[in-house]
Computed example of a mutant assay.
Amino acid sequence: MTAATTPRVDVRRADDRLTTRIAWLDSKHSFSFGQHYDPDNTHHGVLLVNNDDTVSPGQGFDTHPHRDMEIVTWVLRGSLVHQDSMGHAGVIYPGLAQRMSAGTGILHSEKNDAWRLSGADSPEHSDPVRFIQMWVLPDESGVAPGYEQLEIEDELLRGGLVTVASGMRKHRGQSAIGINNSGAALSVARMRPGDTVTLPESPYLHLFVAEGAVDLEGAGRLTEGDAVRFTATGGQRLTAADDEAAEVLVWEMHTRLGG
């Protein structure tokens, strides 16, 4: 892994993302994923996947394997049921931070069928679930699989950038959940109209506008689904539009994949 050198601010628009659409899934990929492969768009820093998924009720991803990857899931609307081969089962919803470390190997499923956990008499709901799933390369392969989650709704309501997932020394005791990468951290901000946050300075930074619209200092208006890849820069001010709230996801990374 090498350090960034040349400053760059690379804006990627929502409509330029690769897309997978089937009967129950609308998935938009910020990077190469599945059958969509672009050798010039495989990662930024150590972030390999930033999928914007909407899953229909009663549907979802059947049990499938992962290995040697830190997988962070952030739900924006609705609820997502997680089940894995380590015996974890639960519902992920907005304001709940969740991380799965695939390590030496893990099987899991993700479905929009939370009512099934409540018993046969629970009414089915008709709401889709929208979530962002992010994959980060771990520091080392072959670690033991793991799972962690924590409710952080109260912290988000206080405003500002909230550290959701981190393996960095400076965030020990501060991040909601940990990841097995000592040079990466995910922060989230729920911004009221007109709110401003300052982006961290980092060799690699990835900003994703999950909801609403924001103005980025030096780059202008960004809307839902837009992303920005920063190299060897940071410190810019980000301001929510005057007429709507916004939610942004920010990866701070001090290493990158490859040379």
Rank of each mutant, 00 (worst) to 15 (best):
G45D: 04
G58C: 12
V250R: 01
A102D: 06
D68Q: 14
A189W: 14
S141D: 13
H108D: 09
G220L: 11
T233R: 13
R12M: 07
G103C: 12
V91R: 01
T42W: 02
G235A: 07
F208M: 12
V49E: 02
S30I: 14
R8W: 02
P7G: 11
P200A: 13
L238N: 11
A4N: 03
P94E: 12
H88P: 00
G220D: 13
S56N: 06
I22A: 08
G142W: 06
G183C: 12
G159Y: 09
V72R: 04
H29Q: 03
P193N: 03
D113V: 05
R256F: 00
A102I: 05
R130I: 09
G225T: 09
R158H: 14
L137R: 14
S187T: 15
R130H: 15
E124H: 10
A246F: 14
A210L: 07
R190Q: 15
A14I: 01
L117K: 08
P57S: 00
G90K: 02
I92F: 10
G159D: 09
T163I: 15
Q35A: 04
R130D: 03
L186A: 11
E211F: 11
W115N: 02
E153Q: 15
T104P: 04
A210S: 12
D154R: 15
P123M: 03
P123S: 08
